[in-house]
Amino acid sequence: MTTPLLSRFQPMLGFWRGPNELETGRRGLMEMHFQSHFEGEVVQLDAHTWDIATGETFSAGTGLFALGPDGRIIENLYVERFGFCRLDETEDEPDVLALRGDLPDGFTMSVSLRLEADELLLTSQLKSGVVGMDLPRTVARLRRYDRQRGEGAK
């Protein structure tokens, strides 16, 4: 059985991993895990980024995606670096999930997710509202590793 929410997220469910660069310029390896709960009423995203050399985690967050009364996606998000916020779906191309919301410190966060073949492209940006204070856009290109033995496997 599918729900309107699951019909949007079904291709993303599972485990994804790939290089990520934060707005600070720090590079790492990002892992994302999408899973649905309560018969597809909510989709949970757990994301971590760790240092490639040491394995030390330097970014972590969890988001819960649900549908609002108008059929648009709402994400309740916790990111360790920013705290709690709510992102609302904004208009974009049909194959893009774009979300935007306000952070506690006055920044606005915009996030976009696009699935291209077996690659998930995640970008995010923090904007301050003050000209010239926008932070660089972060980009993560993630591949799913749950449909095959990875190329590194013996």
């Binding site: 991993r17 290089p19 390896l29 990002m30 190329e151 590194g152 013996k154």
Partner: peptide, 11 residues
């Protein structure tokens, strides 16, 4: 275990 740069699984 992963390949550090790509995240591809090793074991």
């Amino acid at each position: 275990s992963y390949i550090p740069e790509s995240g591809a699984p090793m074991t």
